[in-house]
């Protein structure tokens, strides 16, 4: 229960930050990505502020033995720069520039009740589900076939 409440509070704070910084507004995001046009650099301050805060905060938190509500810190272990990372990040940037939304702001923008946001989130969920499906099939195929006898 504590873990649920902690996540709820963290999600709320995250959303408040996205709204205050106006990252929920696709036009603002697209203006930030319009580097060669009427570039609006303000989202660089959002990312900078978030990055520096997290960098400092993580130094303290990750020094502790364990998180408050869990056995251990669940940190990514992959270190290789594989084609999936580069391909996935490339695709994400393209979609981001097309729709002006990345996953967090799109979810926080839902209660603003714009039809376009609901359509984006539905399409994004389908994209994720398709990935899970394809990934599942690839992993099944990669498993060695056991031959009896």
């Amino acid at each position: 229960m504590k873990a649920i409440l902690g996540a709820l509070a963290a999600g709320l704070l995250f959303g408040l930050g996205l709204i205050a910084s106006e990252m929920v507004n696709p036009t603002k995001v697209i203006s930030f990505l319009d580097l060669f046009g009427a570039w609006d650099p303000s989202l660089a301050f959002v990312m900078g502020g978030a990055l520096v805060t997290t960098f400092i905060g993580y130094r303290f938190v990750l020094k502790r033995e364990r998180p408050v509500n869990a056995e251990k810190f669940d940190l990514p272990t992959k270190t290789d720069l594989d084609p999936r990372l580069i391909g996935g990040a490339s695709l994400f940037g393209i979609g981001w520039g097309m729709a002006g939304y990345c996953p967090g702001p799109a979810i926080a923008a839902l209660p603003f009740m714009y039809t376009e946001t609901f359509i984006f989130v539905a399409a994004m969920a389908v994209g994720m589900a398709v990935y899970n499906l394809v990934d599942g099939m690839l992993q099944q195929r990669a498993q060695p076939v056991l031959i009896d006898g």
């Binding site: 999936r84 996935g88 979609g95 520039g97 984006f120 399409a123 994004m124 389908v126 994209g127």
Partner: peptide, 12 residues
């Protein structure tokens, strides 16, 4: 864009 963001973020 939504489809690409969904698929791309999971792949990456």
């Amino acid at each position: 864009g939504g489809l690409i963001v969904g698929f791309g973020t999971r792949l990456g």
